[in-house]
């Protein structure tokens, strides 16, 4: 197991390096630089000086190593669009709202979705199942900005219970979180249902019944345990992927989160911020995959115990 984890850590380091090189090269391969925008005309001479001061005139590999050296010391540089602060400070300011929105959305949506999926699987082909499935399908097919608008219309405009936008007191968080929670809720409901049904149709479930176990024990000990196996691999990456927040929900409710910076950093060729955001997401995905793979191995005796005996 320890060897396995060490191997995985080594592969993460490799993935991280490869991604950083590719992204770095791609960003620099796209024509144009930060001072080419039409809204801020700069003379070529000034541009050259600015480029030189930022090290943008050096060979690419030098720029790359210089950058990565900084990254290893938690120095991600300065964002062009907000030169008064470092990238790290900008993230520290803009990330918490995104994290609260995404995290709370998943923490509320995922368990509800799992419960809904379980209910649908255990009462399959009854109205419970049809209702849950219809709800999950709606949740997946209606774009989140439509859900957001509906929520604003009903709870902010008609009922006037909650503010339509902004990110102030916690009660202003409610609508964006609810809007966002529909995504994990619907996804997990569908996935849980199919994973549970898959296990319920396995022959060993009949054997468990035939030996006289109570239905409750069969469901909660055996079926859930086996259904959790495929669920783990999908849930964790999603969990962390969603924790970075949703660009659409943030835009609809004007949440001052990271969402806006994803778009602006690309449009404005804000290399430092762009790179930092991509590396951050890469790292989070790598770590979450590692955690889910370890969980998978812990839950699955085939991986945990290896070969035959007896």
């Amino acid at each position: 197991m320890i060897v396995y984890i060490l191997k995985r850590l080594a592969s993460i380091a490799l993935t991280f390096t490869v991604v950083s090189v590719i992204v770095f090269l791609m960003m620099h391969a796209v024509p144009g630089g930060p001072f080419d925008g039409n809204d801020m005309p700069v003379s070529d001479e000034v541009k050259a000086k600015l480029n030189a001061s930022l090290g943008l005139d050096r060979p690419l590999y030098v720029q790359y190593f210089k950058y990565m050296w900084g990254v290893l010391h938690f120095d991600f540089g300065v964002p062009f669009q907000s030169p008064g602060e470092t990238v790290l400070e900008l993230l520290g300011r803009a990330w918490p709202p995104s994290l609260i929105l995404g995290g709370a959305g998943v923490l509320i949506g995922a368990p509800l979705g799992i419960l809904l999926g379980m209910a649908a699987a255990l009462r399959r082909n009854t109205w419970v199942d049809y209702l849950a499935s219809a709800f999950a399908t709606l949740g997946l097919t209606i774009p989140v900005f439509v859900t957001s608008m509906l929520l604003i219309l009903v709870f902010a405009v008609w009922l006037d219970w909650l503010p339509a936008s902004g990110w102030g007191k916690p009660y202003s968080w409610v609508l964006p979180i609810v809007a966002y929670a529909t995504i994990p809720l619907a996804t997990y409901a569908r996935y849980t249902r199919s994973a549970m049904l898959d296990v319920l149709n396995k022959p060993f479930v009949t054997v468990l019944r035939a030996k006289g176990l109570s239905e409750r024990r069969i469901i909660f000990q055996h079926v859930l345990r086996n259904a959790a196996l495929p669920m783990v691999t999908v849930f964790l990456p999603m969990f962390i992927g969603t924790a970075t927040g949703s660009i659409f929900v943030e835009a609809m409710f004007r949440v001052p989160g990271l969402g806006a910076y994803f778009v602006s950093s690309i449009n404005l060729r804000d290399y430092a911020l762009e790179m930092a955001l991509i590396l951050m997401i890469t790292m989070m995905f790598c770590v979450s995959y590692l955690i889910s793979d370890i969980l998978y191995a812990l839950l699955n005796p085939r991986i945990r115990t290896g070969g035959r005996r007896g």
Binding site: P203, F204, A210, K211, G212, S214, H222, R225
Partner: peptide, 28 residues
Amino acid sequence: GRDLAALRGRVAAMIFQDPMTAFDPSFT
């Protein structure tokens, strides 16, 4: 429910065709 569970395994037990799929793979 409960009466059936008491019957199964105790009064009548059953063995099945494919032993490879008859056990829960997650438990010893």
